Simulated scan of single mutants.
Amino acid sequence: MCEANVYIDNYDGKGEILYLENVDVIRPEDGKLFIKNLFGEQKFFDGQIKEISLIKHKIILTKRQTT
């Protein structure tokens, strides 16, 4: 299997928190990230990809910075 877990970095000052497990699709859609896992669960995240580790099956996202 090639799925990964998605984490949000520095969410409310808590470090990395798990956002969605067993993710197999991430794509940009309407200025956000569409994320879908193997079980059909879908989420949209307003942010960007910070890091992808294929060896660790881990994707780290960061919230979009507002100015």
Rank of each mutant, 00 (worst) to 15 (best):
N10E: 15
K58M: 08
I49M: 11
V6T: 07
Y7G: 05
I60F: 01
E21T: 14
K36V: 07
E21V: 08
V25W: 02
N37G: 10
E21Q: 15
I26N: 05
V23T: 06
L61W: 04
I49T: 11
Y7S: 05
K58V: 01
I52G: 01
G15W: 08
Y7M: 05
V6L: 08
D9H: 15
E3S: 14
K56E: 15
K14H: 09
Y11N: 10
L54E: 10
K58L: 04
D24A: 01
I49V: 15
F44E: 11
I26P: 04
Y19G: 00
K32L: 09
G13L: 08
N37R: 07
I52H: 02
D46C: 03
G40I: 06
P28Q: 11
L38C: 07
K50N: 11
E16R: 11
F39N: 14
S53R: 10
E21S: 15
V6A: 09
E16W: 01
Y7I: 05
A4M: 13
T67E: 11
V6Q: 06
C2W: 02
T67R: 09
Q48N: 12
K43C: 04
E51I: 00
K50V: 07
D24M: 05
D30M: 09
Q65W: 01
G15N: 07
K32I: 02
K58R: 15
L61F: 07
I55Y: 08
I17H: 03
D46W: 06
D30K: 13
Y7W: 12
I35H: 07
F45V: 06
E41T: 13
V23C: 06
N37H: 07
L61N: 08
G47F: 03
E29W: 08
V6S: 04
E16I: 03
F44R: 12
V25E: 14
D46M: 07
N37P: 08
N37A: 09
K43R: 15
M1V: 07
I60L: 14
K56G: 00
K43I: 12
D9S: 15
V23W: 05
K14L: 15
I35Y: 03
N10K: 14
I8K: 02
K14A: 12
I8P: 01
F45S: 04
K63N: 11
Q42H: 00
L18K: 14
T66D: 09
L20Q: 10
I17K: 09
L20C: 04
S53W: 01
L38H: 00
S53V: 02
E41G: 01
E3R: 02
I55C: 02
K50W: 00
E16P: 01
N37D: 15
E51N: 14
E29G: 00
G40N: 11
D30E: 13
I8H: 02
L33N: 06
D12G: 00
K14I: 00
E51P: 00
D24K: 12
Y7C: 05
L18I: 05
M1H: 09
A4Y: 11
E41R: 13
F34M: 04
